[in-house]
């Protein structure tokens, strides 16, 4: 809910800057580790825009991949499969202590309005 509310505030500010009023589409990019539940986000966004200038706007949620730096050899890699933080390093096989380089992002990436 608070993420949806932040997205709406950001869109309102951007539309005001560009003298637009009606939102057609907003795209939010989120990392696979960002603890965002797309269904909950869609529900919250719809509930909060009903009866406003943003009603009916399309919300696109685009997932960004996780990128790790191996806790053993330091190699950077994108984990394959469903294990995200414990994925074995393709270079040395280490599964532990990886450093998260990407995958926690949560940002508004694109807006279409009129």
């Amino acid at each position: 809910m608070s993420v949806a509310s932040s997205v709406i505030s950001i869109v309102q500010e951007e539309l005001a800057k560009h003298s637009a009023t009606r939102l057609l589409l907003v795209r939010v990019r989120f990392g696979a580790l960002a603890n965002l539940v797309p269904e909950a986000m869609e529900f919250a966004f719809e509930a909060m825009t009903i009866g406003t200038d943003f009603e009916g706007a399309k919300l696109e949620l685009a997932m960004a991949p996780v990128k790790l730096q191996c806790g053993g050899c330091g190699k950077e890699f994108e984990p394959q499969g469903k294990e995200l933080l414990f994925a074995p390093c393709p270079a040395c096989g280490e599964e532990a202590g990886h450093h998260v380089l990407a995958g926690r992002e949560l940002y508004v990436e694109h807006i279409e309005a009129e």
């Binding site: 932040s6 560009h18 939010v28 990436e109 807006i111």
Partner: peptide, 14 residues
């Protein structure tokens, strides 16, 4: 109108 932006959703909190 297309508005390209990169704004962290949690920026106000951060």
């Amino acid at each position: 109108m297309e508005i390209p932006v990169v704004r962290n959703v949690l920026e106000a909190n951060d």
